[in-house]
Simulated scan of single mutants.
Amino acid sequence: MIDLYSWSTPNGRKISIALEELNLGYTLHPVDISKGEQFSAEFLAMNPNNKIPVIRDSDGVDGHPVTLFESGAILVYLADKARRLLPVAGRARYETIQWLMFQMGGVGPMFGQTHHFQRYAAHEKYSLERYTTETHRLYKVLDGQLAKNEFVGGDAYSIADIAIYPWVARFGLHQIDLASVPHVKRWYDTLGERPAVQRGMEVL
């Protein structure tokens, strides 16, 4: 059984979506980051970086329990465990991981900064413009990839799609009309119809 320690953020929702898609049984443990629960001694023992999500898998590697933090690492672990949503070898595996890293290194940090300045510091015009401009650039990169492929990593739905979807779901904070990135909109609407995505988004 997998224990999921999470909250209703894009990074948290990546993991609940993946667990639903992979049909892996799990128990949810809400960690209310608005109340600072991520700084508790119990949580820090699992993740010294005090960030959600974290998983504990009692049936881990080689029969031993596994505790993991960092959402990208968790997605790879879960996909490998279920042998789905990430090719086990070859070019397609590395192309999927490439776009997962695009989310981890670009979409997450830049969209997250845009969220912060839109919500809490909109008066800081330089910072807001800087991060919004970069967010829009990343949408264009994503749109270009999806113009050539049905899904982010290629022809198959994968953890790369799962990683990016919850961030795009907050497009209202990004000052972007999805009609301006039509391939992203097509992809976003398609994923939004998946029952597992809907369940994963509604866990918290």
Rank of each mutant, 00 (worst) to 15 (best):
R93Y: 08
N49D: 04
I162C: 10
D189W: 01
F151L: 06
E20C: 03
E134G: 00
K185Q: 15
R186D: 04
L4I: 15
R199D: 03
D143K: 09
W7G: 00
F117Q: 02
G106S: 12
A92E: 15
A156C: 07
E70W: 01
D161R: 04
A18D: 13
A169N: 04
D80W: 01
T27R: 12
G25K: 12
V76W: 04
S40Q: 11
T9L: 11
R130A: 07
L78T: 08
I74C: 09
S158Q: 08
W7P: 00
R56Y: 06
Y26V: 03
I55L: 05
T114V: 10
F43K: 11
M46G: 12
V88H: 05
S71P: 05
E134L: 00
Q145N: 09
S34D: 13
E21H: 04
F102V: 15
G192S: 07
E134H: 00
G154W: 01
E20G: 05
A41F: 05
G36K: 13
Q175W: 02
P87S: 10
E42A: 12
L68H: 10
R170K: 05
Y157C: 12
R119C: 06
R91M: 09
A79W: 13
T67H: 15
F117W: 08
K125P: 00
L191Y: 12
E20T: 05
R13A: 06
I2E: 10
E124P: 14
R84W: 05
Y126T: 03
F43S: 07
L178K: 06
D155F: 00
G172Y: 10
P10V: 01
I74S: 13
L22D: 04
T9S: 11
T132K: 00
W7Q: 01
Y126E: 01
K14N: 11
K140Q: 13
E70M: 08
V54T: 02
